[in-house]
């Protein structure tokens, strides 16, 4: 087990190195030189040359890469070239808690909807409830998250005035201000996620309920609730956990768009602003951090997978 986890962790680190390398070279080797295009926005060619020299962009590519990679290893992602020249690290340190708050709350909201919905649909197969859950799951998968965000703002912020329409308040300023600012974005981000998980739980439950051990448990005269919650559900969770990593990608992608609707200055908004401002150190740093979160979440999912299913032994 320990050997497997060590192997997977080393694998994840190698993937991160490859991601960093790809992110670095893509901005520099594509035709048209996007970095030059970004620097031309400065207006004055002499100033652009000065910035190029300052950033080391006049050096050979391998020197730039080696220098950049050593700095990344030390946790230095460079400085923003737009506006205040602030360190990308600092920007990420401010933005990441917002995105992680949003992703975590979306995950909780989505799971709270998906688990009962999936269980109800599976235990009442082909009933109106099942059809209702299936239809809403399709609807959730088909609705663009940014549009759902707009609809939520129209209803709950602009008309009912129940919740704030935009912004973010840190948890340190109180639970309710933090929570109230994240409710609508979490629903917008979590809806598609909950649709996928509900459908997975339904099909996994239906599969498990057909298995031999369920027949044995039923023939022992166990109550229906015990059958479902103690015997079927934990086993149905195993295939669901495997798609959690994929579904988490959906949360991260959703956060990128939805943060822009609710003006939450998280990693998503930082990335899009970086692209629109042509601020390549910010774009590079944000992409790196988002993919690190994604890669290590998948690693975590793999580890959880081995914990919830004692039958899985990777050492053999």
């Amino acid at each position: 087990m320990t050997r497997y986890m060590l192997k997977r962790t080393i694998g994840a680190v190698i993937v991160m190195w490859a991601v960093a390398t790809l992110v670095f070279f893509m901005l520099r080797i594509v035709p048209g030189d996007p970095i030059a295009a970004m620097l031309f926005d400065v207006g004055d060619p002499a100033a652009a040359e000065e910035i190029k020299e300052k950033l080391g962009l006049d050096k050979p590519m391998y020197v730039q890469y080696a220098k950049w990679f050593l700095l990344v290893l030390q946790g230095d992602l460079g400085n923003s070239i737009y506006g205040s020249n602030i360190q990308v690290n600092r920007l990420i340190a401010e933005a990441a808690p917002r995105t992680l708050s949003l992703a975590t709350l979306s995950f909780i909201v989505a799971t709270m909807i998906a688990i009962p919905a999936g269980l109800i649909a599976a235990t009442r197969k082909n009933s109106n409830l099942d059809h209702g859950v299936t239809f809403f799951a399709f609807l959730g998968l088909s609705m663009p998250d940014f549009w759902l965000a707009i609809l939520l703002i129209i209803v709950f912020a602009a008309n009912l005035h129940w919740l704030p329409a935009i912004g973010y308040v840190p948890l340190s300023e109180g639970f309710w201000p933090w929570f109230s600012h994240l409710i609508l974005p979490s629903i917008a981000v979590g809806t598609a996620f909950s649709a996928i998980v509900a459908r997975m739980i339904r099909s996994a439950m239906l599969e498990v309920m057909k298995s031999d051990f369920m027949q044995v448990a039923r023939s022992k005269g166990l109550r229906e609730n015990t059958l479902i919650m103690i015997h079927a559900f934990p086993n149905a969770l195993i295939p669901v956990v495997t798609v959690m990593g994929i579904a988490f990608a959906l949360l991260m992608s959703g956060a990128v768009v939805v943060e822009n609707v609710f003006s939450i200055k998280g990693l998503g908004r930082m990335l899009i602003q970086g692209i629109l401002n042509r601020d390549y150190p910010v774009v590079q740093g944000t992409i790196l951090i988002i993919s690190a979160i994604f890669v290590f979440t998948n690693l975590l999912v793999d580890m959880v997978y081995t914990l919830i299913d004692p039958r899985i032994r990777y050492d053999k």
């Binding site: 991601v19 993919s291 994604f294």
Partner: peptide, 9 residues
């Protein structure tokens, strides 16, 4: 390597 990024990103 591509698997290390969400598609939309």
């Amino acid at each position: 390597l591509q698997w290390a990024f969400p598609n939309f990103i």
